Computed example of a mutant assay.
Amino acid sequence: MNLRDDDSAPTTRARRPRGWLRATIVGGMAVLFVGSAVGFIAFLSQLRGVEIKPARNADGIVVFTGGSSRVSDAMELLAAGYGKRLLISGVHPTNAVSDISRSLPDNHALLGCCVDLDRSAVNTRSNAAETRRWARERGFNSLIVVTSNYHMPRAILELSHAMPDVTLIPFAVIGDRWRDEPWWTSGPTLRLLLSEYAKYVAAEVRVRLAVIGIEVMPEASDQPVQAPRRPATAQAN
């Protein structure tokens, strides 16, 4: 009996570490899942469900291309006098003012006098860099930021990091898909939100590391410009 007990002891001792490791992995995955779920809910809480006009005017207006009606909404704000000039950031390199004017026939005069096009930006991070350059050249200290509601948290994060001394006033554009049905009933919308949340978390980590002096390179690209000519603007975000 004693011999058999002694023979089984090493096996029992070998199983204990494996069981402990398995429990640790499962526990870690559970914590990660819960943390991600809580973070996703917090991210969703930042998204506006209706369009609200800016509470105040600003020196300039910047719109990031990539979503339906972003540019037209930004032009409406410019026409209403919410800003002195408008920067359209992320325009496809092959598109000209004439391409945009065809989609905005009522704003020809504004396009000629008060609109600047940025063709260099290919993602949200470079949108912020080009916006910083434009604002500094113009001497602007406040900007109204126009982009889709799901993209606004990341846009404000990147802009705040790029120009902490500039006041940012968000104007979130609500797309038709968001209006027509709840996001949790639409597979494409849910995938879009999950993808945007992942990008937001990655940007948050990179920005926090940069604050303590750790620069993460190379710059991550959301959607690099590599497609052929597009109708009016590049879908950079």
Rank of each mutant, 00 (worst) to 15 (best):
G81C: 05
A80N: 02
R191S: 10
A129R: 06
D116I: 14
A74M: 03
S142W: 11
K84R: 12
G66V: 09
V145H: 01
S69T: 14
C114I: 09
G112N: 15
L77D: 12
V63I: 03
R85C: 08
Y150M: 00
V31P: 13
R70C: 07
E158Y: 00
V50Y: 07
V97F: 13
V205D: 04
T65E: 00
A55E: 01
R230H: 06
A58L: 01
D5T: 03
A232K: 06
M217L: 11
V31D: 09
E181F: 11
A30G: 11
R191E: 12
R177W: 08
A80H: 05
Q235M: 05
A55Q: 02
R48K: 13
V26Q: 11
M152W: 06
L47N: 02
A58F: 04
L193R: 13
S72V: 03
K84Y: 07
M1W: 12
T124S: 11
A172N: 05
N127T: 10
V38W: 04
A121K: 11
V173R: 01
A172K: 07
V97K: 05
A42E: 13
V91L: 04
S221F: 08
G19C: 10
L159D: 00
S186Y: 04
A198H: 04
R179A: 07
N127C: 13
R48L: 06
A202C: 07
L110H: 03
E215D: 06
L32M: 15
V62D: 01
T94K: 08
V31I: 14
E196G: 07
Q235D: 05
